[in-house]
């Protein structure tokens, strides 16, 4: 299963990418683990995971074509 993960804010700065292709992740826990293994510079980052425009807090099953975004807080005002 291939999934595109959209990155926002400081996560784009830290990875140099606004979208990551991720494969073989059946749920959000494994997705998070895969992203952090690929990009260890994100390990100290706080971010929300949104699946199909809903914030998911607990582990959430993923399906092909899901719209996924990783949303860090923004500091500026």
């Amino acid at each position: 299963m291939n999934i595109k993960v959209k990155l926002f804010g400081s996560l784009v700065d830290k990875t140099g990418k606004s979208e990551l292709p991720v494969s073989g992740c059946p749920d959000t826990d494994s997705l998070k683990k895969t992203v952090l293994t690929q990009y260890p510079q994100l390990k100290d980052c706080v971010f929300l995971i949104s699946v199909n425009k809903h914030i998911v807090k607990d582990n959430h099953k993923l399906e092909e074509g899901n719209d996924i975004a990783l949303l860090p807080p923004f500091a500026g005002g």
Binding site: D44, V46, P73
Partner: peptide
């Protein structure tokens, strides 16, 4: 409810550090 824990200090830049598009705010 969005962010129960603050980000690690210094891990996220503010406008003075990162820059910001003039019209964005």
């Amino acid at each position: 409810c969005l962010f129960p824990e603050p980000p690690k200090s210094g891990s996220i830049q503010n406008c003075a550090e990162a820059g910001v598009l003039g019209v964005l705010p």
